[in-house]
Design a protein around this nucleic acid. Structure first.
Lengths: 232, 232
DNA sequence: CTATGTGAAGAACTTCACAGCT
DNA sequence: AGCTGTGAAGTTCTTCACATAG
């Protein structure tokens, strides 16, 4: 099956859909390390050193990177500046992403305050809520707007591509539908419920209690612990 | 390699460490559905229906559950009340877990306010911060305490088993060390940095920007999308 | 001599097909 | 007849070993 490769997988005999999801998760970890070292003025790193920093096997580090090109120099390692640039390019972080937050409860407000999003290229451009007491209040220079104008807002701002859902479980599906109907391409949901979406919408769910439940399992069952772990 | 099985894997020819991590993640999803249906008064569910609710293949639903016992009735399905009880038991959710939060910034405070933790069996018992302006302030009936008394607190409250780290990247490792040195068995970290921990400490990391970066990748590279997805 | 890049081997996970109960 | 439970098959992901390049 031959497909147009919009990821630059050069002369490789892998198509983009053969690249493991876990690889993408790990790319973000490499980027984290590389950004830190870049700030510290380090100029070069080997897969073994990247392995030390991330606890990801060095074979896997090289395999992951090799899906996208040959970024290293044999006998030497990877140049930090090159690796950083390439990772950002692969992950689509060269351009900034306009993002709306729906839900101005504690979590939604915490997310607006969180500076990490902007630092990494995600610009929060508006926040919405359904509660009359919250609408009109200001956070970080934003006025909380009514969810009833969300649709209109997205129509007049078609460059907003990502929506963050921080509403209660009961209204999550409704909001998700609204976002999808108005051009949003990616959704990050914090609602503790499964949401149904069309296949072509990119969707990630973070359920805070899920993580605690998984921790509970491994605390309760120490023999179940593995040496490896997959985390996002 | 034969090991003592503290998970009740009965006559099965699997040891606890052979149960996939992904299975545990999915168990929490089954639990979510089963709790919802239980509230709605539904008494029975088949693996096919569980599959519809979770978008997890029904073969996999049955395989996941079969690691831990035979909870269903052939020809009929699973009794909701039984499944709920068993899932909670497997995940170690029969007893409640005392949990401390370290870091009273926006995120830490949002977590304290979040009622979902208590609903699922995780009791927030204290919150700590290093900033003099925050120490002494009250949230949800808790006085924010100094991180300098964290160690003392944990020593006099040895039944606290889980720590949530919501401090900046720079102090995350320090706090993690402190928690581990004082009997904490599981750590959930929101710090955008890798933390080094002894192997026997259960550790989960939630990096909020990581999820957005992964979304960015799949938005930017539509051909890379897969039909399956692993989410926590 | 060092460290990358990668086909091939191996391990882990998922899907399948159907035997086994109710 | 219907749906679970599970060995076996199939697929995906990780590890390995080594050819390759500096």
């Amino acid at each position: 099956m031959l497909r147009k490769a919009d990821v630059d997988v050069r002369k490789k005999n892998v198509t983009p859909d053969q690249i493991p999801y876990s690889t993408i998760v790990r790319l973000t970890q490499y980027l984290r390390v590389v950004e830190k070292l870049d700030e510290l003025g380090v100029s070069n790193i080997s897969s073994a050193e990247l392995s030390d920093e991330t606890h990801i096997n060095s074979f896997l580090v090289r395999k992951d990177l090799s899906y996208f090109g040959e970024f290293g120099t044999r006998g030497v390692g990877y140049e930090i500046s090159v690796l950083k640039r390439e990772l950002k390019s692969i992950l689509g972080l060269v351009k900034r992403h306009k993002t709306v937050i729906v839900g101005a409860g504690n979590l939604g407000r915490a997310l607006v305050h969180y500076s990490g999003f902007r630092d990494k290229g995600f610009d929060i451009v508006a926040i919405f809520d359904s509660s009359p007491e919250k609408i009109g209040a200001s956070i970080e220079g934003f006025k909380i707007e009514s969810v009833f104008v969300l649709e209109e807002y997205l129509k007049s701002n078609p460059d907003v591509t990502i929506g963050i859902i921080a509403v209660p479980a009961a209204s999550a599906q409704f909001i998700a539908n609204l976002l999808v109907a108005n051009n949003i391409q990616g959704i990050l949901s914090f609602a503790p419920i499964a949401i149904n979406l069309p296949e072509d919408v990119v969707y990630a769910a973070v359920d805070l209690t899920t993580h605690l439940e998984i921790i509970s399992y491994y605390i309760t069952n120490p023999d179940a612990r593995k040496s490896y772990s997959l985390r996002a």
